[in-house]
Amino acid sequence: MSAIYKREFQSYFISPIGYAVLAAFMFFSGIFFYVQCLYTGSVNMSPVFQSMFFIVLFVIPLITMRTFADDKKNKTDQALLTAPVGIPAVVISKFLSALSVFALCLCSFIIEGLALSFMAKPDWSVIIGNVFGMIIMGSSFVALGIFISSLTESAVVAAIVSFVINVLLSLLDTIGYTVNWEWLTNIINALSFQGKYNNFALGIVSLSDVVFFVSVTCLFLFLTDRVIEKRRWA
């Protein structure tokens, strides 16, 4: 398992993808930090995190697009699936390596927090809570992206489809407002990613939100495992 994790993680930085993703994420996070903290003279970093939600939607499909699609295309899955390793271990290793790259992106917030601490006293509990929230939410997007990647041979298709689904999920709130039936609004709100994420951004870590994101992650990792297993029976 550690072998796959290591290889996958390294592969992000052998190709330009890892660097491109890191650069894009840090670029936007820098801009938002400048506009919402430095320019306005505010110590509160919550708006930065709220703005970064949409960047996350873009960035995660780029991280996950190649996980299984490339393996299938280059037939390297034959090496993984005929090795003495179970399919769940393969899925989890790939998930953890993608999540690690995403976690690296989040380091930009720590750097920004440190930059703030030279000038003022930032609220570290908000920053840490937010980074934690972003990892938890990001893990469900990563799991979703890996699942989409396992369905196709083309990394580009995987990226586009995951991106569209991510945007749809984040638009659920807006759809929820426009629906007249209360029961449907309740269901949509219960599934909303952004609503739950905004709680984290405000510094509120609620157990139900954590459970929601963890369950979504587990669900999509399980589905990925099933997709790979099903391919053996095709």
């Binding site: 290889r7 052998i14 280059n74 037939k75 034959q78 090496a79 005929t82």
Partner: peptide
């Protein structure tokens, strides 16, 4: 030990 029809090689390594 298995050598498939198309060797399962990672081109970037």
């Amino acid at each position: 030990g298995y050598l498939p029809e198309i060797p399962p090689l990672y081109n970037d390594m």
